[in-house]
Protein backbone atom coordinates (compact mmCIF):
# COMPACT_ATOMS: atom_id res chain seq x y z
CA UNK A 1 0.00 0.00 0.00
CA UNK A 2 0.95 3.62 -0.57
CA UNK A 3 2.15 5.61 2.45
CA UNK A 4 -0.64 7.36 4.31
CA UNK A 5 -0.56 10.59 6.26
CA UNK A 6 -3.43 10.85 8.72
CA UNK A 7 -3.99 14.19 10.39
CA UNK A 8 -6.30 14.39 13.39
CA UNK A 9 -7.54 17.59 14.93
CA UNK A 10 -10.06 19.07 17.29
CA UNK A 11 -10.46 21.35 20.26
CA UNK A 12 -8.67 20.72 23.56
CA UNK A 13 -10.87 18.58 25.80
CA UNK A 14 -12.65 16.71 23.00
CA UNK A 15 -10.65 13.54 23.47
CA UNK A 16 -8.25 13.77 20.57
CA UNK A 17 -5.58 12.07 22.69
CA UNK A 18 -7.67 8.93 22.85
CA UNK A 19 -8.63 9.12 19.17
CA UNK A 20 -4.97 9.39 18.20
CA UNK A 21 -3.83 6.61 20.50
CA UNK A 22 -6.55 4.23 19.27
CA UNK A 23 -5.71 4.97 15.64
CA UNK A 24 -1.98 4.52 16.24
CA UNK A 25 -2.45 1.18 17.94
CA UNK A 26 -5.07 -0.02 15.46
CA UNK A 27 -2.86 0.75 12.46
CA UNK A 28 0.05 -1.00 14.14
CA UNK A 29 -2.09 -4.04 14.86
CA UNK A 30 -3.25 -4.05 11.24
CA UNK A 31 0.38 -4.63 10.31
CA UNK A 32 1.53 -1.16 9.33
CA UNK A 33 4.75 0.60 10.33
CA UNK A 34 3.55 3.62 12.28
CA UNK A 35 4.94 6.87 13.59
CA UNK A 36 2.84 9.41 15.39
CA UNK A 37 3.07 12.57 17.38
CA UNK A 38 0.59 14.54 19.40
CA UNK A 39 1.12 18.24 19.40
CA UNK A 40 -0.63 18.88 22.66
CA UNK A 41 0.60 21.96 24.38
CA UNK A 42 -1.21 22.99 27.50
CA UNK A 43 -3.58 21.46 29.97
CA UNK A 44 -6.48 23.81 29.66
CA UNK A 45 -9.15 23.35 27.09
CA UNK A 46 -10.19 25.42 24.20
CA UNK A 47 -7.14 25.59 21.92
CA UNK A 48 -6.58 23.68 18.66
CA UNK A 49 -5.07 20.25 19.25
CA UNK A 50 -3.67 18.07 16.52
CA UNK A 51 -2.07 14.69 16.15
CA UNK A 52 -0.07 13.29 13.25
CA UNK A 53 -0.06 9.63 12.26
CA UNK A 54 2.03 8.36 9.39
CA UNK A 55 2.06 4.84 8.07
CA UNK A 56 4.53 3.42 5.58
CA UNK A 57 7.87 1.67 5.35
CA UNK A 58 10.13 4.62 4.64
CA UNK A 59 8.84 7.32 6.94
CA UNK A 60 11.44 9.18 8.97
CA UNK A 61 9.73 12.10 10.70
CA UNK A 62 6.40 11.79 12.47
CA UNK A 63 5.34 15.27 11.34
CA UNK A 64 3.21 15.48 8.21
CA UNK A 65 4.45 18.23 5.87
CA UNK A 66 1.87 20.95 5.38
CA UNK A 67 -0.53 20.15 2.57
CA UNK A 68 0.37 16.47 2.59
CA UNK A 69 -2.38 14.87 4.65
CA UNK A 70 -4.20 12.09 2.79
CA UNK A 71 -6.82 11.73 5.49
CA UNK A 72 -8.08 14.35 7.93
CA UNK A 73 -10.08 13.21 10.94
CA UNK A 74 -11.64 16.22 12.65
CA UNK A 75 -13.64 16.26 15.85
CA UNK A 76 -15.05 19.70 15.16
CA UNK A 77 -16.16 21.62 12.08
CA UNK A 78 -14.02 24.74 12.26
CA UNK A 79 -10.91 22.66 12.95
CA UNK A 80 -11.92 20.39 10.09
CA UNK A 81 -12.13 23.41 7.81
CA UNK A 82 -8.75 24.65 9.02
CA UNK A 83 -7.15 21.26 8.35
CA UNK A 84 -8.81 21.04 4.93
CA UNK A 85 -7.28 24.39 4.04
CA UNK A 86 -3.84 23.99 5.55
CA UNK A 87 -3.06 20.28 5.65
CA UNK A 88 -5.15 18.33 3.14
CA UNK A 89 -3.39 17.07 0.02
CA UNK A 90 -4.84 17.10 -3.48
CA UNK A 91 -7.38 14.27 -3.65
CA UNK A 92 -7.41 13.81 0.13
CA UNK A 93 -10.31 12.78 2.32
CA UNK A 94 -11.90 14.51 5.28
CA UNK A 95 -14.14 12.97 7.88
CA UNK A 96 -15.48 15.32 10.52
CA UNK A 97 -17.74 15.17 13.49
CA UNK A 98 -20.08 18.07 13.17
CA UNK A 99 -19.58 19.56 16.61
CA UNK A 100 -19.53 23.33 16.64
CA UNK A 101 -17.22 25.02 19.14
CA UNK A 102 -17.13 28.73 18.52
CA UNK A 103 -13.92 30.65 19.00
CA UNK A 104 -13.77 33.89 20.93
CA UNK A 105 -13.45 35.64 17.56
CA UNK A 106 -16.72 34.02 16.45
CA UNK A 107 -18.51 35.10 19.59
CA UNK A 108 -17.26 38.66 19.35
CA UNK A 109 -18.37 38.78 15.72
CA UNK A 110 -14.86 39.17 14.28
CA UNK A 111 -14.84 35.92 12.34
CA UNK A 112 -17.65 33.89 10.87
CA UNK A 113 -18.00 30.28 11.92
CA UNK A 114 -17.66 28.11 8.80
CA UNK A 115 -20.70 26.28 7.41
CA UNK A 116 -20.75 22.67 6.17
CA UNK A 117 -20.92 23.99 2.64
CA UNK A 118 -17.75 26.03 3.08
CA UNK A 119 -15.84 23.09 4.50
CA UNK A 120 -17.07 20.84 1.72
CA UNK A 121 -16.20 23.39 -0.95
CA UNK A 122 -12.61 23.60 0.33
CA UNK A 123 -12.30 19.84 0.06
CA UNK A 124 -13.91 19.77 -3.42
CA UNK A 125 -11.48 22.42 -4.63
CA UNK A 126 -8.73 19.92 -3.89
CA UNK A 127 -10.67 17.16 -5.67
CA UNK A 128 -11.17 15.46 -2.36
CA UNK A 129 -14.00 13.78 -0.56
CA UNK A 130 -15.67 14.84 2.68
CA UNK A 131 -17.88 12.92 5.07
CA UNK A 132 -19.96 14.58 7.78
CA UNK A 133 -20.72 12.60 10.91
CA UNK A 134 -23.24 13.58 13.54
CA UNK A 135 -25.17 11.49 16.01
CA UNK A 136 -28.27 13.18 17.37
CA UNK A 137 -28.78 10.72 20.21
CA UNK A 138 -25.24 10.64 21.59
CA UNK A 139 -25.46 11.04 25.37
CA UNK A 140 -21.81 11.70 26.14
CA UNK A 141 -19.89 14.20 23.98
CA UNK A 142 -16.67 12.46 24.98
CA UNK A 143 -17.69 9.55 22.78
CA UNK A 144 -17.79 11.54 19.55
CA UNK A 145 -14.33 10.19 18.76
CA UNK A 146 -15.64 6.62 18.83
CA UNK A 147 -18.50 7.56 16.49
CA UNK A 148 -15.91 8.91 14.06
CA UNK A 149 -13.74 5.82 14.26
CA UNK A 150 -16.79 3.66 13.65
CA UNK A 151 -17.57 5.57 10.46
CA UNK A 152 -13.92 5.35 9.40
CA UNK A 153 -14.07 1.58 9.70
CA UNK A 154 -17.22 1.45 7.55
CA UNK A 155 -15.59 3.57 4.87
CA UNK A 156 -12.53 1.28 4.79
CA UNK A 157 -10.19 4.21 4.26
CA UNK A 158 -7.41 2.32 6.02
CA UNK A 159 -7.47 -1.28 4.78
CA UNK A 160 -7.29 -3.76 7.63
CA UNK A 161 -8.37 -1.39 10.39
CA UNK A 162 -11.61 -3.12 11.36
CA UNK A 163 -13.93 -3.37 14.35
CA UNK A 164 -12.05 -6.28 15.89
CA UNK A 165 -8.72 -4.47 15.76
CA UNK A 166 -10.12 -1.21 17.09
CA UNK A 167 -11.84 -3.10 19.92
CA UNK A 168 -8.51 -4.66 20.82
CA UNK A 169 -6.84 -1.24 20.86
CA UNK A 170 -9.62 0.18 23.04
CA UNK A 171 -9.27 -2.69 25.49
CA UNK A 172 -5.62 -1.76 25.98
CA UNK A 173 -6.50 1.80 26.86
CA UNK A 174 -9.49 1.55 29.17
CA UNK A 175 -11.44 -0.89 31.25
CA UNK A 176 -14.72 -1.48 33.05
CA UNK A 177 -17.83 0.53 32.27
CA UNK A 178 -16.05 3.00 30.05
CA UNK A 179 -14.78 0.18 27.81
CA UNK A 180 -18.18 -1.47 27.73
CA UNK A 181 -19.90 1.74 26.68
CA UNK A 182 -17.37 2.46 23.96
CA UNK A 183 -17.44 -1.08 22.58
CA UNK A 184 -21.21 -1.05 22.55
CA UNK A 185 -21.20 2.13 20.52
CA UNK A 186 -18.51 0.83 18.18
CA UNK A 187 -20.37 -2.38 17.46
CA UNK A 188 -23.89 -0.92 17.31
Amino acid sequence: MKDLNIYMCGVGGQGIGLLAEVMLRACHKAGYDVKGVDTHGLAQRGGTVVSHLRIGKKIHTPLIPSGKANIVIALERLEGARAASEMLDEGGKVIYYDAEYQTIGNRLGKFKYPTHEELEATVKAKNGESVRVFEEELSDPRMQNIVLIKKMIELEWIPGVDTAIVSEALAELMQGKMLEKNLELLKA
Binding site: R45, G46, S66, L78, S85, D89, I104, G105, N106, F111
Partner: peptide, 20 residues
Protein backbone atom coordinates in the same frame (compact mmCIF):
# COMPACT_ATOMS: atom_id res chain seq x y z
CA UNK B 1 5.87 21.41 -6.23
CA UNK B 2 4.35 23.41 -3.40
CA UNK B 3 1.39 21.76 -1.77
CA UNK B 4 -2.04 23.27 -2.15
CA UNK B 5 -2.30 24.95 1.24
CA UNK B 6 -4.03 28.06 2.24
CA UNK B 7 -3.72 29.73 5.62
CA UNK B 8 -7.02 29.62 7.45
CA UNK B 9 -7.97 32.96 8.95
CA UNK B 10 -10.00 32.06 12.00
CA UNK B 11 -7.66 31.65 14.93
CA UNK B 12 -8.57 29.58 17.95
CA UNK B 13 -6.81 31.26 20.83
CA UNK B 14 -6.61 29.03 23.88
CA UNK B 15 -9.02 30.00 26.62
CA UNK B 16 -9.48 29.25 30.26
CA UNK B 17 -11.74 26.24 30.77
CA UNK B 18 -15.47 26.53 31.37
CA UNK B 19 -15.98 27.34 35.02
CA UNK B 20 -12.33 28.29 35.62
Amino acid sequence: IKPVTQPFANPRIPQMCPGC
